[in-house]
Design a protein around this nucleic acid. Structure first.
Length: 196
DNA sequence: GGAGCGATGTCCT
DNA sequence: GGACATCGCTCCG
């Protein structure tokens, strides 16, 4: 990735909406069996703590959501609807809960492996949606929960390759039943790789 | 192409 | 026991 830079921890030590916006256009990299699978992040959602009934952290710290309360820049993976995994990155300073759900990416490298894991070769459907993205990258709670994305030795990292995202759109979050009116979903307008 | 719905495991009440 | 930050299939038009 040429002049790309690994995003530093301070990037994540901000409010979830700031980090969610900032992650658009960045490159998500996942090392699976020695191969790097990468994609450009095109859709994210911000989840706060107290005051955000839709957030997992809202109920307080539990064994499941503990990563959200820890230091910024760590992977939080949870299981939903009996069959899907979802990838988040913790933000806010250590002790303050918050996270960003990574909902979709434009696949860049490792397309064949992603297609095999997903069971489809349709590039637009490889990682359009949080469940699909995790399936394409082989991400599970047991395997990746708690990983530090700012460590060069990690199997999940996020890079800035200096590509400017296009126009950023803001909408309400998807699939939730509480706080449905808050505009905390961010996406790159016109991208063919977003969900919904 | 869009609405409806079943699948299915884990966590918290 | 019920809710759940989803997905892909069916059925209808």
């Amino acid at each position: 990735m040429g002049k790309a830079k690994l995003l530093p921890r301070r990037f994540y030590a901000e409010a979830p909406d700031v980090v969610a916006r900032g992650l658009l256009g960045k490159v998500l990299a996942r090392r699976l069996d020695g191969e790097w699978l990468t994609g450009r992040i095109v859709e994210t959602e911000a989840y706060f703590g107290k005051d955000d009934p839709a957030a997992h952290a809202y109920v307080g710290k539990t064994e499941r959501n503990a990563v959200l309360f820890g230091p910024p820049g760590h992977v939080y993976v949870y299981f939903i609807y009996g069959m899907h995994w979802c990838l988040n990155v913790s933000c806010e300073p250590d002790g303050t809960p918050g996270g960003v759900l990574i909902r979709a990416m434009e696949p860049l490298e490792g397309l064949e492996t992603m297609a095999r894991l997903r069971g489809t070769a349709n590039r637009k459907l490889l990682a359009a949606g949080p469940g699909r993205l995790c399936q394409a990258l082989g991400i599970t709670r047991k395997g990746q929960n708690g990983i530090d994305v700012t460590d060069r030795g990690s199997d999940v990292q996020i890079w800035d390759d200096r590509t400017k995202p296009g126009r950023i759109m803001t909408t309400p979050r998807i699939g939730i039943k509480k706080a449905v009116d808050r505009p905390h979903r961010y996406l790159i307008a016109g991208s063919g790789y977003v969900s919904g």
